[in-house]
Design a protein around this nucleic acid. Structure first.
Lengths: 317, 317
DNA sequence: TATAATAGTGACAACCTCTGTCATTATTAC
DNA sequence: GTAATAATGACAGAGGTTGTCACTATTATA
């Protein structure tokens, strides 16, 4: 094998292995230890961050900075990755320690000229928005670590009514609509609940010895299925104007079932958990004249109640 | 310079240059043409997709698949890029032709073992949500191309009231809240307007010969500043409950100015364009009892009007 | 049709780099 | 102390690399 090829393969090999000795590599590549030593020095000069320790159980290591081997990317692929990563700048807080901007700069810098040109062209023309939030969330890394390692976390949580202390076992974290959310098993409520990370005032791994539950099979994709047996559905029916249809499609978090007519108006007919009726009452109120709720009766009653409260507040009755 | 180093640099060089001849490279690297030919063949064997043409104006080219040279990434950097790109799967439509998933697979495949482990651990535990939408948008690529190349596009647009045909010159496109938006200069209204891409029923480059305007200085970051001279601000003041504060922070698209008190309640005091008062009237109505609007008088009047309409509709008066 | 520009191949000798071996030093765990 | 490991230097020989030259093939252009 020629030296150049050996160097390339060596680069990949040392990246694959956490730890290795010169002897091992010499055996693997069928060359002498002396040669491997010289090769490793050359890799070092090429930028691979090697670190060595002498003595028994010593050996070589690659430091946490790894070399990504040469990868063939199509222009569009590289561009897509670039803008996806670029979108992370909208997040004030990320669960990763490193700033993604450094990775982005490297990526950009090493890109072939025409890809870079393409990116430059598009730089101010494409974006994946996220709501910009001022609030910084410090606990993301801890929550993620807890989710990965199945650990219990004690948090102080500011819910709608008041602050409370509780122990949770996170399922994971996700960003949505500019906020970070953490679904977790709540030992207080004995069930899965959704927490908003910016309302977590403080968080730390549990020290009181609460035994973690085995929730390795629960993840972001399926946690909602667990512990929701008490859910009762009611059927909402509402008549929507053209604008009402558009706002429902835009603002409801789950894609609503709406039969849309030729002229753009439509009719919503959807089952929702009974517990969410207060939310929908306010939602349809916010649509003003664009929506007319026909059922269920409880929902209409809630809307009437809100209406009279508001009428009183604004001096109409 | 040693052969290995020359090969590495050669790889970067050919990636940087669109087109090149053997002679040029020979001059640049101070070696003979024969050597460069041998090197290029070796690069070819290593996977760089080279293509050559003989004759005058011939030469070498690298095909559109480019080789990304070795890059040193920290674990966190690679992880961040991975998840950012992973988030693109939420988008049914993207302005890039390539599927980002192919890039992601390559990226993942070539990653050092421990980085891959780290990603696997986190795979179902971190996510950047985007509202999942059923609608597919076909015109994204065209709009983006038009924005980059300063071209005029003729669209059929379904606005709040009705469908209409108009010529626009896109500024760019961005995804927000699950929808794609396209700010553009509208030749019909003679000003910049925001279009929602899924409401663009059809789009094509203009054929009627409308002269594009020079809007190269207008981009996603500043387009709102152009052509908004008629804007009149009014000052909204509202008292908010704890929940009201949270909903305002979550749902208003611009970060609102809210003075938050110890107990979580707060007071909003913000200037907004007068034209948006109808929107805010409905918004505050949707907050129900969590908000009490104190001013301006026009806003309160709008709310009262909505209230009495709704009261009539729901049989309260 | 001739000419020039380009890629591509083969051969060969000179040169230089790479490789293995050996000797040696330094460090550290056990 | 001993064994395991990295690190360095010297040297000779093997083998790879390079430049030159001669030649072929293709193609745009005058």
């Amino acid at each position: 094998m020629s030296k150049s090829k050996r160097l390339m393969e060596l680069m990949m090999t040392v990246n694959r292995m956490r730890k290795f000795t010169v002897k091992e590599l010499a055996a693997e590549f069928n060359v002498s230890s002396r040669t491997i030593l010289r090769d490793l020095q050359e890799l070092s000069e090429l930028g691979v961050p090697l670190y060595s320790e002498v003595g028994p159980h010593g050996g070589y290591q690659v430091l946490k900075e790894r070399i990504l081997p040469p990868i063939a990317f199509g222009v569009d692929e590289a561009v897509a990755m670039f803008f996806a990563s670029h979108a992370l700048r909208h997040y004030l807080s990320l669960p990763f320690e490193a700033e993604s901007s450094s990775a982005l700069q490297k990526f950009y810098f090493y890109m072939p000229g025409d890809v870079r040109d393409r990116i430059d062209e598009m730089k101010n023309r494409v974006d994946f928005h996220a709501h910009d939030r001022r609030q910084k969330v410090d606990c993301l890394g801890l929550l993620l670590e807890a989710a990965v390692r199945q650990r219990v976390v004690t948090i102080r949580y500011g819910s709608k009514q008041e602050d409370s202390e509780r122990s949770i076992q996170p399922v994971g974290i996700y960003a949505s609509n500019g906020f970070w959310y953490c679904p977790a098993y709540c030992f207080l409520r004995r069930g899965f609940r959704l927490f908003r990370c910016d309302r977590i005032r403080s968080a730390a791994f549990d020290e009181t010895g609460i035994e973690p539950l085995d929730h390795r099979h629960v993840h972001l994709g399926n946690w909602e299925e667990f512990g929701r047996e008490e859910r009762i559905d009611v059927r909402i029916v509402a008549e929507l104007s053209r604008e009402g249809v558009q706002r429902c499609q835009g603002e409801l978090s789950h894609v609503p079932f709406i039969a849309v007519r030729e002229d753009g108006s439509g009719r919503l007919d959807q089952r929702v958990p009974e517990s969410e009726l207060p939310y929908f009452a306010k939602f349809f109120l916010g649509l003003g004249g664009e929506a007319t709720v026909e059922g269920p009766e409880e929902l209409v009653a809630l809307i009437r109640k809100l209406l009279s409260e508001l009428s009183a507040k604004y001096g109409l009755m």
